[in-house]
Design a protein around this nucleic acid. Structure first.
Lengths: 232, 232
DNA sequence: ATCCGGCTGTGATATCCATCACACTTGTGT
DNA sequence: ACACAAGTGTGATGGATATCACAGCCGGAT
């Protein structure tokens, strides 16, 4: 059994697990295991029988993705530290329907199913936190579906970029340095078209580049585009 | 204060509210209001400030929909009796992001925010039920996103039909007699193309028609189509 | 019975976008 | 310094599907 002092330090103030009282939190942590992941390393595979643990992201970044019938990757979401991942399969005890992969050097906490459920079930406040989080996701996904169905490439990519800005640092830099392929898989369009749009927006001064990385210059414009589509 | 004996009768065995013990259930019901809706009548409007109540569907049917920037309707889901609707805006206290409309003669129960949250928060079992339900929705929506992005019209419509079959009656009849426009809004394609596909499938004996209504003849085929796309 | 409004069938056309093809660039390890 | 992999830029093409246009059609209201 390892020490978790450093883990406790890393729990950001508004993290999901912070909703737990110190006592049950410690009990839960004692049953958890820490794990380090290299970029590209996968921790949950699509199709795994059933969830044996939930994943709590301490540092780094994860992507949730599925590969579609045609073999193309669809990135459903990116996760930043403090987020809980993979608890869906625990709650409804179904198989894993998506894969979880590290996109940078990452440390996670593996929370065993039973310990997690017990802890949450006996702590109404933290349970409400989980409820809120799930509610937020449903909302977010509604927007994705709406966007997919009604918007053309531009607005969809704009939406992906807005979702990926690093809100900590206030410059327009993106989280996890996604490649154009990643952006395509996230926004639902072909890599080539990401390239075309990026070039176009660069000449318009909406975004800039630092080496390979993108920097958003005109956040407001992208937000408008993402919300109202081409007719801004 | 009206009586709720008839309401209790209508709570199906596996309904969400059944997860409550009789005592707190009665307390919650006493604070609720029953309401009848005519087809097309709207109970929650997209953009409403914040949720004042959750909706529990007793009889009839509801649709959850948003109108996109271009003015087109997107039907996110249909709901059958026993389902809870509109609790998202309660949980994260955001504005209403979708509209809820009756599609047939319907009776619902309006559960006031505070009463609902209190009841659920003090009843771990029912809270778990709500968690499960939200988890199920996230899963379902993931499939919709995947389907939207990778499949062509055929599989998408197949998926919509499969989601709409009346599982009570075991014939292949659909819930709520949707029009072709409804199917289009649900599956994410233009009404004209729904018409074309329906005609094609009819000649192939996959579906049949009774007046305007559709009857599914070869459910298995549609399920295959919905899952694996055009290359079945 | 008849009219009108919403639903449905079907062709022609236009558009958006994925795909293919290939050259080019960057950076990473040896 | 070099080679090779991964990432990127850009044109040409085809295919899928939305849109437009219009012609039945059916059911409910007057």
């Amino acid at each position: 059994m390892e020490s978790f002092d450093d883990v406790l330090d890393k729990l950001s103030a508004d993290s999901l697990l912070r909703a737990l009282e110190p006592e049950p939190l410690n009990a839960l942590l004692r049953q958890s295991r820490k794990r380090e992941l290299k970029p590209g390393e996968t921790i949950i595979n699509q199709g795994d029988e059933k969830g044996a643990f939930a994943v709590y992201l301490l540092t780094g970044g994860l992507k949730i993705s599925v590969v579609s019938a045609g073999g193309r990757e669809i990135i459903l979401n990116y996760c930043a530290p403090g987020e809980l991942v993979g608890e869906i399969a625990l709650l409804d005890s179904g198989p894993r329907t998506a894969a979880v992969t590290a996109v940078v050097d990452t440390t996670v906490l593996l929370l065993p199913t039973q310990a997690f459920l017990d802890t949450v079930a006996t702590n109404p406040t933290s349970m409400i936190a989980v409820l809120r989080e799930l509610a937020r996701r449903v909302r977010e996904q509604n927007l994705v579906i709406e966007s997919d169905r009604t918007f053309s490439m531009g607005p969809r990519l704009a939406r992906a970029l807005v979702r990926l800005v690093d809100s900590e640092r206030d410059d327009g830099r993106l989280l996890f340095n996604p490649s154009q392929s990643d952006l395509g898989a996230f926004a639902g369009l072909a890599r080539e078209n990401v390239s075309r749009l990026v070039s176009e927006w660069e000449t318009q001064g909406i975004i800039a580049r630092e080496g390979r990385a993108l920097v958003i210059r005109d956040m407001e414009y992208l937000e408008l585009l993402a919300e109202f589509g081409d007719d801004v």
